[in-house]
Design a protein around this nucleic acid. Structure first.
Length: 207
DNA sequence: CGACAGATTATT
DNA sequence: ATAATCTGTCGT
C-alpha cells in the first residue's frame, strides 16, 4: 500500500506549501523498484503576480499543467536537455507551483548511480535537473496526478531536524520584486543542496 | 520568421 | 567560460 499526501496538502499557496515540502519523501516507482529521496531544497513560484514564474504571461503548451488542479506534476524541459519537476499548488487556474531543487537519496541509490553515470553520491540529486535524471522523471510525467500513489507521489517523512532557511531564488530573471522575494527554502547545512553560491550566504531562519 | 534568453549541467 | 539545443517571447 502506498500513502500519498492528500490533495488538501497542495491546495494552498505555493509559498506555504514550499517550506512544508522540506523533509517529505518523493517516491518514484519504476519497473517495480522504489527510488526515493528526502526533499531538502525547493522554490515557490506564483502565477500572474510573479515575474519569475513560467505562468506569469498565462498558459502555453509547455506550462498548461501549472494551471490545472493542485497535486499534479508540472515537468518541463530546460535548455533543451534537462527536465525539472514542479508540484502544482493553489487554486486551479492560478498557475502556482513549487520547483523541487534537491533531494537527499534514500532508497534505490544503486539505480540512481547507474542513471547518473557514476558521479559521486553527493552529486546524485543535488540539482533540479540531476534529480530528474536520477529518478527517471521526464515529460511523460507532466500532468501526472500525485495523489494516486502510482508511479510518482509524495509521502510524509520525519519532520526535519535541521533549521529551515529562506533566501532569493536561483537563476531567475524578472523585476526587482521577483529577484528579491525569499522563496527558496532549504534545510540548513544539508549535504545535498544544489551547488549555488547562496549556500554560503547568511539566511533567514524560519520559526 | 529569426534572434535570443532561459527555474541547468558537465566539461574546458 | 562554454556548449548542449528545446520553448517562449519579442522584434522585423
Amino acid at each position: 500500500m502506498t500513502n500519498p499526501l492528500p490533495r488538501a496538502f497542495y491546495a494552498r499557496s505555493a509559498v506555504e506549501v514550499a517550506p512544508d515540502l522540506l523533509g517529505k519523501v518523493l517516491v518514484r516507482e519504476i519497473e517495480g523498484r522504489r527510488l526515493t529521496g528526502r526533499i531538502v531544497e525547493v522554490e515557490a513560484y506564483l502565477g500572474s503576480e510573479d515575474a519569475a514564474s513560467h505562468a506569469f504571461r498565462g498558459p502555453t503548451p509547455r506550462n498548461r499543467s501549472m494551471f490545472g488542479p493542485p497535486g499534479h506534476a508540472y515537468v518541463y524541459l530546460i535548455y533543451g536537455m534537462h527536465h525539472c519537476l514542479n508540484i502544482v499548488t493553489g487554486p486551479e487556474g492560478d498557475g502556482q507551483a513549487v520547483l523541487i531543487r534537491a533531494l537527499e537519496p534514500l532508497e534505490g541509490i544503486e539505480i540512481m548511480r547507474a542513471r547518473r553515470g557514476g558521479v559521486p553520491d553527493r552529486r546524485l540529486t543535488n540539482g533540479p535537473g540531476k534529480l530528474c535524471q536520477a529518478l527517471g522523471i521526464d515529460k511523460r510525467l507532466d500532468g501526472h496526478d500525485l495523489c494516486l500513489g502510482e508511479t510518482l507521489w509524495l509521502e510524509a517523512g520525519r519532520p526535519p531536524a535541521e533549521p529551515i532557511c529562506a533566501g532569493p531564488r536561483v537563476g531567475v530573471r524578472g523585476d526587482d520584486l521577483a529577484l528579491n522575494r525569499p522563496w527558496r527554502f532549504y534545510l540548513k547545512g544539508n549535504l545535498f543542496l544544489s551547488p549555488t553560491p547562496h549556500n554560503r550566504l547568511p539566511c533567514q531562519t524560519l520559526p
